[in-house]
Design a protein around this nucleic acid. Structure first.
Ligand code: FES
Ligand code: FES
Lengths: 122, 122
DNA sequence: ATTAAATAATACCTGAAAGTATTAATTTAT
DNA sequence: ATAAATTAATACTTTCAGGTATTATTTAAT
């Protein structure tokens, strides 16, 4: 969607480009709509447009609304029995890649997807 | 195990330290044994020891034997419909964190787990 | 008004990974 | 020899994210 952010797109439009099951796609869109990333217009000639400017939508925010960012902040494997103050031996090993990943999420916006114009929508 | 690499440990020993279901743990140990990372000794006073020196066992190797490294080399999300030569718009975004992650896996050995001596086995 | 085209809500299905259960095989201590 | 303590093999169950199915609601074109 970000590659065509100006135009309102229906689930049908998106389905024709994307290789995601149509019905599943619709459920995702509904979720994104509830989360306030996109704005839904019902009825004939309806569809979805972004609710906000692309360069204000960070990947971290999207992921956070879908599954929660917490999963990335503690143990990479999502372990809950590993105490934060006395983590297991592996903890520090993952620290660096985890930070890099989090940093990418927190500094990348949907607008950044558009910079590589030669890359086709898949 | 790496924190006590010298001593042979039985599944019971490990279970007392780890917070993993005992039976599941045993299956994992059997798998690791088949993969050749640890050496199993059956019978009374049996158990597991590392089959090789800790500093020759890279995380990448372990993960590779368990689920295959390929999952990290292409699309981070594991998409197979995203062609390598013309990847989707998100591809380049993940490139950096993915490389960092892979690098960590490929340069870290089990011996590195021991460097932080003050970290307790969890 | 009616119909077509869209989103919304909600309940259901499925396949693979995580976890369990059971039984067999192996070794050592007594 | 027997029993105890271990790993091995294998089949089963559970869980949950990914995906389906169905029906309701909304809007605009005719
Ligand atoms: S179990 Fe993941 S950091 Fe300890
Ligand atoms: S879908 Fe993951 S890189 Fe294209």
């Amino acid at each position: 969607m970000a590659l065509n952010y100006e135009t309102q797109l229906s689930a049908r439009n998106l389905f024709e480009e994307l290789q995601i099951p149509k019905r599943y796609l619709m459920r995702l869109l509904t979720d994104l709509s509830k989360s306030g990333f996109i704005k839904a217009t019902r009825g004939r000639s309806g569809g979805y447009v972004f609710a906000r400017s692309l360069d204000t939508i960070y990947f971290s925010e999207i992921i956070d609304s879908v599954e929660g960012l917490l999963s990335f902040e503690g143990c990479v494997l999502g372990s809950t029995v590993c105490p934060v103050d006395k983590p297991c031996a592996m903890h520090q090993i993952w620290e660096k890649p985890k930070q890099t990943f989090l940093e990418t999420l927190k500094t990348t916006t949907l607008a950044d997807l558009r910079s590589g114009k030669n890359i086709r929508l898949q």
